[in-house]
Structure formats: C-alpha cells, structure tokens
Nucleic acid binder design. Structure first.
Lengths: 129, 129
DNA sequence: CTTTATGCAAAGCGTTTGCATACTT
DNA sequence: AAGTATGCAAACGCTTTGCATAAAG
C-alpha cells in the first residue's frame, strides 16, 4: 500500500459525491502534485478488486467510484450530473423475481433514478422568474 | 426518412437482442453495403430523440439500442454480454419513494440485473465435468 | 433548387497499457 | 537484489464531428 494508493482511497472515502477518476485525480493532486492519471486508474481498479471501492456505471460516459459499503441505490441529476445516494431500503425480493422470469442466475441488481436535484430545480425556477 | 434511416430502425426492431451500434452496422450492411458507422450513430441518435428507440447505458462500455416501447427492465449476462428483457411488472411506486427520500424530482428509473444466462451456466457446467 | 443526409476520415474523450525509472522490503 | 508501483506518453475502443458529395423534398 503506497502513499498514492492510500491517498486515493482516502479521497474517495472523504467525498460522498461519487467522484469520477478525473475528479479523484484533481483532489489527490493537491496533496501529491505529481501523481498521474494512469496511477489513479490503476489503483482505483485495484481497490475495486479488493472490495474496498465500488465502480458505478450509470449513464453519462464516465464511471464513478463509491466507497460506501453495502447495497444502496443512486439518483443522478440530469442538469448538473451529480450522483447521490438514495436512502431507501433495498429490495432483495426483486432478484428472485427476475431469476424466475428469465432463468438467469441473478447475482446483482442496480436501481438508478434520474431526475433533477433541489438545487437545479431552484436554479431553473429563479431563471424563469 | 432516407433508405438508411428506415433500414436502421427496422434492424433494431427486428432484433430483440438490444444490439450495439456496431452490431446494427453489421446487420444493415447486408442490405446497404456502403452505409457508414457515422450514419449509423447519427440516425440511431435521431431515432432516440424522436422516441422511436431507446438508448441503454448498462455497463460494459457500449451503449445498446432497444425498440421495445414502454418501461421494462433488463438482465445482462456477465459471461456472454447479452442483454435480455425481464418480464416483470414495473414498480411505479419506487419513484415516489426515491423522490421522498432525496428531494429530487424523479422522472425515470432503471432497474438492471446482472447474472449468468442459462446457456452460459450450461457451458460452465459442461466444461467443469 | 434548397435542404438535409451520406460516406469518409479525422478528432474527441475516457480509459488502459508499455516502458524506463523509482520506490519498497 | 527482487519485486512492485510510478510517471509519462502512446495506444485503445467507442462515439462524435467536419467536410465535400449525393440524395431527398
């Protein structure tokens, strides 16, 4: 566990905004100005393999990283792109239902919401008035 | 509506395997051998804007296109990568629950399952024996 | 004849990889 | 000294775009 790797894990844990690799890079650069993007990708991937992080593949091109353990769901704002956790109880029964309906052996499910966050709704409202 | 555009829409409707842009390109090329990938992307995007197709952004790098109307869910096989529909009733109540929990105005939700399809389970089983 | 779409090639963007150098242990 | 990680730059895969030509209305 090198200095860089520790700093990367720390940066993702500190943010609860589900940063992209690039955002992590910018954040860590404040402490380690010479860290490269390649190192960021390599180590985030490694931390995912070790189960310390999760990689999210919601729409919008970039993958995002999440340090929160356990299953939970996400919302993405279509206007500002931010991703937040949804505090609702996971639905374990849906995997069984899907397995029954498809014949697959279902191992995960992802539930993602899309909409507009409070801040962006306000921004639109005040621009209109 | 050009010949190319009609052929593209047709190709996606004909497949229920949720083809990628590249797969659509290969399929349409059989009828229109000179059609370019650029044209494929431009027209699929256009058809999405017109609401005739939907673009799926499940993990795995490539986007996929879906001609089936109405809300429904998907499973993706981790081994062969195929994407299939899940015949289960949509859960309209979850959007309200998410809106309540987050303060977002929620307009869509996507529920995706990940697992292993029947064929791949058999393949693994027979390789093992 | 004006507008819109096409094929082609180049550029874009996020991510991955090869390689020589620099850490770790 | 052996093994692993780093920075840098180049390569990669998918998608988008600029442009001259061709098709559509």
């Amino acid at each position: 566990m090198t200095r860089q790797r520790r700093a990367l894990l720390d940066a993702v844990q500190r943010e609860d905004r589900h940063p992209t690799a690039d955002e992590v890079h910018r954040a860590v650069r404040r402490r380690l100005p010479r860290i490269s993007l390649g190192t960021v990708y390599r180590n985030l991937e490694l931390l995912v393999e070790q189960g310390l992080l999760r990689k999210l593949d919601l729409g919008g091109g970039q993958r995002r990283f999440d340090a929160k353990p356990g299953p939970h769901y996400h919302v993405r704002c279509t206007r500002c792109g931010r991703v937040e956790d949804v505090r609702m109880r996971p639905l374990p029964a849906v995997e069984r239902a899907a397995a029954r309906a498809t014949g697959y052996e279902v191992t995960e499910h992802h539930l993602e919401f899309v909409g507009r966050c409070g801040e962006c709704r306000n921004a639109v409202r005040s621009a209109r008035d």
